[in-house]
């Protein structure tokens, strides 16, 4: 970042003062929020992660156990499976939803008359609470009274798929629901990005005789690259935390086919009330994610350089 060139302005001192003060007070509200609401819980979490906590005679007693949490991790039969499923889920939904969200954003940005219809419809899945989405889709998928099976049987299909009851199809079923639910998230961010592109740029390209595809590839995509990458990053973090929707749809089954890490942490924290181990797992996942994000930011810089 370069300094603003202010040297030739008339009232340098006031301006510097004004600039300086704005720089600070613009950040103050955020810092207040973060300090008041996040610092203490995270410190407590760090303490918990090296302890074992238990209620004894009504008091929460904490015992330091240090890195013995690693033993708990080694004994945990679910955490490996859950991480694997989570990774598959995250990679699949982020890629599919990014492609779909971008395509939709480009397409809808070209429409005029029906634009308002498209924009409103696309927001709808986001407004339904995840529990309702989970139960609705479990009704749609249900083998005995569900919509899809009923239709397929009417059409004369002999062995309709079992969807969430088939260990090989369960994760795919969950991914389908997620794509329906969350593509709009990426769509909204990308549409905002496209709408921020100065129309003059697109006009210039059109005058130069670029066809639609070339315009997307050489004008829109490079400008949009940072937005797309940020949207993917936010979606990745969100997908990593997927919980309610799967909890209602499959509860992690059949077998362990749809166990994901956030559901496992919830179980350890709430049902098993192993606060220490849950804190440890939370931090472990966050550390894992941070490494991923750092790598991602580095990689995205490389990509941006290529495209730019």
């Amino acid at each position: 970042m370069t300094q603003l060139s202010l040297s030739d302005s008339r009232d340098l001192r006031t301006m510097l003062f004004g600039q300086g003060s704005f720089k600070y007070w613009a950040l103050v509200p955020l810092l207040v929020v973060l300090t008041v609401f996040t610092v203490l819980p995270i410190i407590q979490l760090l303490q918990m992660s090296v302890s074992e906590l238990e209620f004894v005679e009504g008091e929460l007693v904490s015992e330091f156990i240090g890195l013995r949490q690693l033993d708990n991790l080694a004994k945990d039969p679910i955490v490996g499976i859950a991480l694997k499923n989570t990774l598959v889920f995250v990679v699949a939904v982020v890629i599919i939803e990014t492609v779909a969200g971008f395509t939709l954003a480009v397409a809808i940005s070209r429409t005029k008359t029906l634009s308002i219809l498209y924009r409103s419809v696309v927001i709808i899945p986001l407004l339904i609470p995840p529990v309702a989405i989970g139960t609705t889709w479990s009704l749609i998928y249900d083998f005995n009274y569900g919509l899809i099976t009923t239709i397929l049987i009417e059409l004369g299909v002999q062995n309709p798929p079992l969807w969430t009851a088939d260990p090989d199809l369960a994760l795919i079923s969950v991914i389908i629901v997620d794509v329906w639910h969350w593509t709009s998230f990426l769509f909204l961010i990308m549409l905002a990005g496209i709408e921020s592109i100065p129309p003059s740029l697109l006009e210039a390209a059109r005058v130069d005789g670029a066809n639609e595809f070339r315009m997307i590839r050489h004008v829109i995509l490079p400008i949009m690259a940072p937005t797309i990458l940020v949207a993917m990053l936010l979606r990745t973090i969100l997908a990593f935390k997927v919980f309610d929707q799967i909890f209602v749809l499959t509860s992690g089954g059949p077998g362990t086919a749809t166990q994901v890490i956030s559901m496992h942490i919830y179980k350890v924290f709430s049902e098993q009330f192993r606060l220490g181990y849950a804190a440890f797992l939370s931090l472990l996942v966050a550390a894992f994610m941070t490494i991923f994000v750092v790598f991602y930011l580095w990689a995205s810089r490389v990509v941006r350089r290529r495209l730019g």
């Binding site: 973060l34 819980p41 973090i237 990593f240 966050a286 941070t290």
Partner: peptide
């Protein structure tokens, strides 16, 4: 910001 965003909200 990223770190608190990655925490499972239950904590």
């Amino acid at each position: 910001l990223l770190f608190i965003n990655m925490m499972p909200p239950i904590v």
